[in-house]
Amino acid sequence: MRGFWRRYSRNRGAVIGLFILLAVIICAAAAPFLFPRSPWSMVQRPFLPPFTVDGLMLGTDALGRDVLSGLFHGARVSLLVGLVSTVVALSIGIPIGALAGYYGGLVDDGLMRFTEFFQTIPSFALAIVLLAIFQPSLGYIILAIAIVSWPPVARLVRGEVLSLRHREFVEAATLSGQSNLRIIIWQVLPNALPPIIVLASLMVATAILLESSLSFLGLGDPNVMSWGYMIGAARTVLRTAWWLSFIPGIAIVLTVLALNLIGEGLNDALNPRLRSRTP
């Protein structure tokens, strides 16, 4: 573990990313205590610019809502959707990839055609279709994002399993009478874990981007304040109150950047072979 941290911390960007993410997590956790009122409620007159009124650091939006409160509550949604949809996508992608890679042949063909199908479909368009048909709610948003983001997991896991499948230690486990399920779970998957972890951290970032894009288009959960919604709502007043679009965008960029940096750090720490030589 100490060796892991030493390799991780050698990547300065990754450490910065970790700090940013921690800050975002703290914001999300503190939101209900710092801003107990609903972020939807009107607190002042509309279009107050940032740093002009005490107690409303970032001002108000077109409907007089507190922008800072929206940012804090939006962090909750972004992290929740990012994490949960990634977990769901992993739980679809890992079994499919593992079965395809382990059994090969027709099973592989069938599962990979299925995966290829989902990978070819323009994923953002599919997410739009799903949310347009099933009414937007947090649950469906998570499901829609998971449905469009599992194929890369399946492909990665399949590739890893395929290369591990014919390693001699897996053949030895077969000969020692262990069941296929046991071999997949205890021999193969633990060795495929490092790249999956790296991919997962990047998927959380992509899911946050996807969620904000969907909310921007008006396909977000109407009961939940999110960064994408804030930008979408401020779009029509871009000329007069540009900061209303600008500020939530910065929040998204920082969060996604932090997750990408962490992904790179994890990659350096978990896959020493591929470690880049630049500091």
Partner: peptide, 16 residues
């Protein structure tokens, strides 16, 4: 009927 494998580096699970 059991087997002894070729490659001592890949025949043992590195995580076990």
């Amino acid at each position: 009927i059991q087997m002894i494998f070729q490659d001592p580096y890949s025949s043992l699970n590195p995580r076990a």
